[in-house]
Amino acid sequence: MKKKAKTVNFSLSHKKYVKKLRQDKFIVIFFRIFVLVAFLGLWELLTYTNVMDPFFVSSPSRIIAQLGDMIASGTLFHHTWVTLYETLIGFLIATVLGYLIAVLLWWNEKVRKIFEPYIVVLNSLPKIALGPIIILWVGSGTNAIILMCVLICIVITTMSMLSAFINADEGKILLLKSMNANKFQILWKLILPSSMKDFISVLKINVGMSFVGSIMGEYLTSKAGLGYLIVYGGQIFKIDLVMSATFVLCILAFVMYSLVSLLERIYKK
């Protein structure tokens, strides 16, 4: 942070220490990249020399060619956008709604106790089991996929936020009460800000979970999207397509996770 400007008069041992820190960091980054390059290189080499059959395992060069074709025809952007759209909408609905439900359950202890067992059951239920019901009720297509995504994220959002709300410092609640605060003020000044850290970790979990939801939804019912490409590619034995779609999915998940991390860093300042 600000202390960097003051490195002028530090002792030799401090310089050594800083140097070692930098070296360690370099080693970590170097080997991170090395692992990736080695993996891709080996993959390419083994398929190029036909030790492994590229028909079954694809290869980096084939994936690049496949992606190139799809970019040229515009289909890559279309399918990526479909999945991203479903994921984002599902993510937003689940996070907002789950958060609001948690606030409601915090607010009223009786309601909380009444719904506790239902939430526990809903949490342990594999949501994919609801697939056929979802399609019957909201029809196949985007709505069903978004709903699947919401169902997967919402319960965990509510449960995590509720436990964060309940674990707020009792002493601080007492302090606010002694200052004549009403329940809304306790919520607004203490419960919500003190649970921000938990909220960010819920966002991080939801990034992963919402992709699970949208891809699973697309497996069930879809005409487009990365999940659709993966299933379709599998059915016509076009492993290049499956790998390409998976690769794009990795990038999407990484970008979304990075955005949440950025949010975290902004918040910590």
Binding site: D169, G171, K172, L175, S178, M179, A181
Partner: peptide
């Protein structure tokens, strides 16, 4: 009321902490 622990809110600055009661 002053408690055994200071009960300062970490996410608020010193100024925001001492004016908490006024906000309420």
């Amino acid at each position: 009321y002053m408690f055994q622990r200071d009960m300062l809110f970490d996410w608020r600055s010193v100024w925001k902490n001492i004016t908490l009661g006024l906000e309420l």
